[in-house]
Design a protein around this nucleic acid. Sequence first.
RNA 1: GUGGCCAUAGCUCAAUCCGGUUAGAGCACCUGGUUGUGGCCCAGGAGGUUGUGGGUUCAAGUCCCAUUGGCCACCCCA
Length: 420
Amino acid sequence: MYKRLTGMQDILPEDQPYWRFVQEKINQVTALYGFQRLDVPILEEAALYVRSVGPGTDIVDKEMYTFTDKGEDEVTLRPEFTAGFMRAYVENHLDKRPQPAKLFSVGPIFRYERPQAGRFRQHTQFNVEALGVEDPAMDFEVMSLAWHFFSLLGFHGLHFQLNSTGCPNCRPRYVEKLKAHYQLHYDQICDNCKRRLVRSPLRVLDCKEDRCQPVIASAPRITDYLCDDCKQHFGQLTHYLDAAQMAYTVNHRLVRGLDYYRKTVFEVWVEGIGAQAAVCGGGRYDGLAQEIGGPPTPGIGFGSGLERVIMAMKAQGVAVPGLPRPQVLLAYLGATAKEKAVPLAVDLRLHDIGVILPFGNRSLKSQMRQANREQVHFVVILGENELAKGVAQVKDLQVHEQFDVPLEDLSAWLSGKLAM
RNA sequence: GUGGCCAUAGCUCAAUCCGGUUAGAGCACCUGGUUGUGGCCCAGGAGGUUGUGGGUUCAAGUCCCAUUGGCCACCCCA
């Protein structure tokens, strides 16, 4: 038998109410903030992601699903949304429309990683991007949208992790300070951090090794080295967050993996879904458009992994409404009744009455058991006796009463009862 | 890519340590208990080449090796 590929998953019917619910909240919150949907292809030129995400990042170096297609083109299954958004923004001249462009999307992304709790090779992301505006009020609006989204989903005790990673003007100066600090304590840090120091120095701040903790604690903080522009931007953003009473922690250790982030970076963490606790992560990427050959365009956005979101909802006991089910089961007894029942089921559905028709000529008892299992409200019983009289018996399973209803009145009768 | 744990019915698990008839239970499913009436209850039924391959042994679900898959953690990320 064939099996799912590693890190891929099926979404079974019993999980669909969660997905439906989350999609509804996405539609609701994006409409509220005036964000419009933009869908981009799942497949793009490999070079787009290499340029935007950055050579040297794990995503590019070892996690992309890249292959050569039949036309000899190097293509990549999208490992994130932002690059494709920027490409589409420039290619479709959205930069010529009134700014900002406030956009969102929902769809699968792919990364070749080892699966673990809350991590899959294919996962679904809700992605939000606001392009064309540098104003920290835009950062706030995007974060606010994320906050609002999780509130609508039923989460409590929300809390942002927040930091600024500076910009090309001030970050290099900080990185030098950081490296100098680490050189002083070089014999105390783990091997991994020695490597990170060369490849992506900021990441040492994120190390979980016990031996590295004292070095991290005494390390210089980037917020102390921001240039005036970055400092002011960060100050404005925190001012807006304070005013809106959205809880946040300035986390000096929060450094996100993608090269393109500038200034604002933030995450939302939840408990109860394992080590991969971030259900939302994003930041500002003002240099990205130029990087891929477009006009200078500031941008701020986030991605939220919906599998993790749904895991967190389950962990926190968030209830979601069930999907609508038929409220009528049409039971029949014998071949003649079945001849009548099959088209009758269709007729009732044309009257907007959901009907389950049992299959396999089973006993009435068996059909009643099915009705109970399916939790229908009414069972319509059609047998020889009823046909002779031109009626159906209708049993109300909730009040345990049974009525004779003339066949020509059946749809109206049921509609009336179901509307109550 | 690295490390740890695990693999028995559709699901959750027992029998594995210390090898020994026909691998069990609960839930779910099907049938019956009413000529044609659900939920509870009762009776019965179906469902397994014990992940796969090899080895040791008179004998392997059980011991050994390999392999595949899963889970969890690291790396990194949503």
